[in-house]
């Protein structure tokens, strides 16, 4: 018996590697976690009449639209990174991933800025707000907070993978796997943005 040998016994019904498949499964599971949270938000909103709609075009919608653009663009650069890695262009991969991380951090910065604005100027906190509808703040910070945790974790994850790619430690499959995660985080925002922000546009 050699110390390390490669086992090639299996078939692969989906023709993708175990790592991307594992990430796909995680994504599906996490999608249900977020769905449950979005359903909770809808439940709270439906069961409470007079749900506040306080978001004005400036700054809330302007900022959140800019954040959406940032996330979408970061997804685009991430897709380019995956593509570059598949074509064996390591340096381009690292550059594209760096751009992705930068936009992700930009998203977090804008988001935190918005949070603090809401807390200080709008008096909307986790537990209270001017409309005495405590669940407004709770669902808002809960949903966006869990998403932000995902973005932060994703930035760290991408940074580790990018560093590994730069040192030649990680391959195309690892970049692809991290890309799946990043796109998923983007995808979740595609539901949070309309449901939380646009449905609360001041009228």
């Amino acid at each position: 018996m050699e110390r390390e040998a490669t086992w090639e016994g299996g078939g692969s019904p989906f023709a993708i590697g175990v790592k991307p498949l594992g990430m796909w499964l995680f994504v599906v599971s996490d999608a249900l976690t977020f769905s449950a949270l979005l359903v909770t938000y809808t439940y709270c909103r439906l069961s409470n009449p007079d749900w506040p709609t306080p978001f004005h075009f400036s700054p809330s919608i302007l900022f959140s639209t800019a954040m959406t653009f940032l996330l979408l663009s970061s997804s685009f650069t991430m897709a380019l990174a995956v593509r570059a890695m598949k074509n064996g262009r390591r340096r381009q991969t690292v550059r594209m991933m760096a751009a992705t991380i930068a936009m992700g951090l930009g998203f977090v910065a804008l988001h935190l800025n918005e949070w603090f604005h809401l807390m200080r100027v709008g008096n909307i906190t986790l537990t209270d707000n001017p409309w005495h509808q405590p669940l407004f703040g709770a669902t808002f910070f809960g949903l966006t907070g869990l998403h932000m945790v995902h973005v932060c974790a994703g930035s760290i994850y991408l940074a580790i993978v990018a560093a590994g790619v730069a040192r030649g430690k990680f391959g195309a499959e690892d970049v692809e796997t991290s890309g799946l995660y990043w796109h998923f985080v983007d995808l979740v925002w595609m539901f949070i943005f309309p449901m939380v922000y646009l449905m609360s546009v001041a009228r």
Binding site: P13, A15, S75, F76, A79, V82, G179, L180, H183, D186
Partner: peptide, 12 residues
């Protein structure tokens, strides 16, 4: 996003 960025359209 799923189809192109996550290239599911290009998988089985």
């Amino acid at each position: 996003i799923i189809g192109f960025f996550m290239h599911l359209k290009f998988e089985r």
